[in-house]
Design a protein around this nucleic acid. Sequence first.
DNA 1: TCTAAGATTTGCGCTGGCGCAAACAAAGGC
DNA 2: GCCTTTGTTTGCGCCAGCGCAAATCTTAGA
Lengths: 233, 233
Amino acid sequence: MPLLDRSAIEGLPPFEGLGPADLDQVLRQAHAARHAKDSAIFEQDEPAEHFFLLLDGHVRVVRITPEGEQVISRYVNPGEMFGLAVAMARPTYPARAIAAVDCVAVAWPNSAFAELARRFPSFGAATYRTIGRWLQDTHTRMLELVTAQVEQRVAHALLRLAHQAGRKTPEGIEIDFPITRQDIAEMTATTLHTVSRLMSAWEDKGIVLGGRQKVIIADPHGLMLIAEQRPRH
Amino acid sequence: MPLLDRSAIEGLPPFEGLGPADLDQVLRQAHAARHAKDSAIFEQDEPAEHFFLLLDGHVRVVRITPEGEQVISRYVNPGEMFGLAVAMARPTYPARAIAAVDCVAVAWPNSAFAELARRFPSFGAATYRTIGRWLQDTHTRMLELVTAQVEQRVAHALLRLAHQAGRKTPEGIEIDFPITRQDIAEMTATTLHTVSRLMSAWEDKGIVLGGRQKVIIADPHGLMLIAEQRPRH
DNA sequence: TCTAAGATTTGCGCTGGCGCAAACAAAGGC
DNA sequence: GCCTTTGTTTGCGCCAGCGCAAATCTTAGA
C-alpha cells in the first residue's frame, strides 16, 4: 500500500492528538484506493462494509427515490469522513457516493470502528460530532429548501460550494471540481433549465461566469445579496 | 421528586441491560418535570444545559427561520430522548421543543452525559444510534418534501403520525394529541389552506374524519394509495 | 349566557417555475 | 477531421398550489 503513510492522516480531526505509533496502529487496518472520476465508491442500500476518509478529490453523495429522482445530499472534501453507516448502526449505506473527480480514499472495515472508538475516545467523539453536524446541516438545508425561493436556493448553494471547495482565480472564485447545471439542480431541488436560466441572468449582470461543468463566482457579494433577498410579502 | 422512580425508565432502549442499582445511579442526577400544554421546554438557540427523556405526553420539535417561518421537525413520543445537543457537541439547542399536551419529561444536566456514556457504553451507543436514525429520517423526509406533490406529502405525514402516535377508535385510527391544520402544514411545507382543502376532499371520500385539532384516519389503506400515487408523467 | 379568540372551510385569481421541445456548443473517441 | 455524446441555452404554455379574503364553526372564559 504505497499510498498510505502516517502523514496522510495526522492532524485530521478524527486523529488529533494521536502519536505516531497510534497512527500506524490506526492505519494497519486500513487500505487506500483510487476511484476514477464518475465511479461509485458505494451504492445506496448496499451492505455497508467499510467507512471512508477522503484524502484527495471530491465525492458527491446522492440519494435516489424509488421513482429515480436524485437529490445531492452533500459534497465530501479532502480530510472528511463519509460512508459512516457503522457509526449509525445502519446495515446498509443510505446513499450512493460517486467520485466527482479522480479520488483517493482510505477505507476501514466496519469491524475496526468499535475498536478505534474504544481505544481512541477522541476518534469516537469526533465521529459523532461529525454526524451531529450533518444532522444540523441537513435540517438547515431542509428548512431552506422548503421556505426559500428557487433563486435564493441556487444562490445559497453556489455560495456554499464556493466556501467549501472554492479556488481563487483572477476572474473570481472557481468551484474546484466539475459541476453541471443538473448537479446544481439536484442540490437545490429544481430543474437544470431553471438553474441555467438563473445563471445566464447572473452572467449578464457579471455576478458569475459560466462554462461547461464550470462555475466561477465573480462577485460573491452580489451573489450574497441575491441569496439574502427575502421573498416579497 | 415523587415522579421519579426506577420503573419509569427501565426497559427503555438507552437503559437496557442496566440493573436496579445502575438505574438508581442514572436517576440520581436527573430530575423530572411537568410541562404544561403549549409551553416551551427549550428554545431554539438557547444554551443547551440539559438533555431529556419524555415519559408521558407528546412534544413538538420546531425549527424557525430568521424570517419567522416554521417547520415541524418531528414529534417526540413517550420513551424517546430529545434535546440531545450535548451528544452532537452543540452549545445551543437547534430547535424549539413545545409540549403538544401536558407532558412529563426527565432532564439530565449535560455534564452527566459523558459520565453516563463512559460508565454505561450501551447508553452511549443507543444515543448515537438514535441520532443516526434522526439523520436518516431527516434525509428521507427531505427527499419526500422536494420530490413529492403536496397531496402525497400530506398523506404520508398523516400515515406517519398514525403509525407513531395512533390510537384505535371505533371510527378509525386517531392521532393521540391535538393537531391543527396549521401543524400539518408545517410538517409538509405547505399552507393550512391546502391541507384543509385536501382533508375536506378526503373526508368526502370517507378516508379521514376531521374535527377541531383532531384527525381520525378511517381508511388507512385508502390513504396509503393516495400516498403512493406517482406524480403523473 | 354572552363574548372573544382560535380553528377551519371555501372561493377566486394569480404566478413561479416546471414540462416540453428544439437548437446549439463543447469534448472526446476513432 | 468527423461524428457522437454530453452539457447548455432559450422559448413557450400551463397549472399546482399559494396569497388573500371572508364566512363559519368551536371552545373556553367571563
